[in-house]
């Protein structure tokens, strides 16, 4: 299990990264935390010509609060995000999801941007960014683009980022007062890729769910915004009737894939169970607030 030969460049500037990406295109891989990339190299599942190490690029680091949004640099480590007071105060959904991201050793090295850019369908961060309506900022020699999360995740490890672009930061709107967030996932062992998962962000007024964003992950090729279920929830009191309608709507919203954890029917069943639990928790949270 040794990686095939590859070239390695430790980039000193974003411009150098752009230049190398232009030159090598899909034969280049960005090396950030390496927690997914290095195993795939060692297993010879990918054989890039060159690794572009961006770990020294300070402009990609850090977490900061701006006007109505939090900027998370692509190189922010999961551990930094997990420990960040800015995240805890402004993006409770991400704070709640962070302990589910693999194990401490992986969180120490793995990056927020790496997870989002890789777009593993079972990963937590893409689901959270989508649930909170975040924006992905990519850049390349051709300039900078901002892509809404809803347009970014396009399939299995497939995103709207072009081969000559790099994800530089993620902007996530601060969770508004009066909203609540619930993050749930099911994994057989702590730290495993989830079998099913749900990132839920909702505004609840009294017993009424004014509106909610429900993003399901780990059951199909990408994190899925469940528009039918969200419509069934909007403006409704959370009761047995709404529960049935929301859970029913998931049949059309989701297209679960069978994998080694189980069949599509089991995945749909688990996502439905999580839906009920998440909204129970969201309503309880709103009441307690």
């Amino acid at each position: 299990m040794k990686a095939p030969r590859f070239s390695y460049v430790r980039a000193e500037s974003l411009e150098q990264v752009f230049e190398l990406l232009k030159q090598y295109g899909e034969d280049a891989r960005i090396l950030a935390g390496g927690q997914s990339l290095i195993p795939t190299l060692n297993m010879r599942l990918s054989q890039p010509a060159i690794l572009i190490d961006i770990n020294r690029l300070d402009m990609l680091k850090g977490i900061s609060a701006g006007d109505g949004a939090v900027r998370i640099g692509a190189l922010a480590r999961h551990a930094e995000v997990a420990e960040s007071p800015v995240i805890a105060a402004r993006l409770p959904l991400i704070a709640a999801a962070m302990p589910h991201v693999a194990h401490v050793a992986v969180r120490n090295r793995g990056t927020f941007g790496g997870s989002v850019a890789l777009a593993d369908p079972a990963a937590e961060m893409p689901a959270c960014v989508l649930a909170l309506g975040g924006t992905l900022v990519v850049a390349g020699a051709r300039g900078r683009r901002e892509i809404a999360a809803e347009d970014f995740f396009r399939g299995l490890y497939e995103t709207a980022r072009e081969p000559d672009e790099i994800l530089v930061e993620v902007r996530v709107p601060t969770e508004a007062p009066g909203t609540v967030s619930v993050f749930l996932e099911l994994a057989q062992r702590h730290g495993d890729f989830a079998i099913a998962g749900l990132a839920c962000h909702a505004r609840i007024e009294g017993d009424t769910v004014a509106d909610a964003r429900l993003v399901y992950f780990a059951s199909e090729d990408r994190p899925r915004l469940a528009k039918g279920a969200m419509a069934a929830l909007a403006g409704k009191a959370w009761n047995d009737g709404t529960r049935a309608a929301v859970i029913g709507a998931l049949t059309d919203d989701l297209d679960p894939m069978t994998n080694l954890d189980g069949g599509a029917a089991m995945k749909l069943h688990l996502q439905r169970v999580l839906t009920g639990r998440a909204l129970d928790a969201a309503v309880a949270q709103a009441r307690a607030a």
Partner: peptide
């Protein structure tokens, strides 16, 4: 005894 095996036994999937 995976989650799927238990759910099958319960007739839920």
């Amino acid at each position: 005894m995976t989650p799927e095996a238990v759910l099958r036994a319960l007739g839920k999937v």
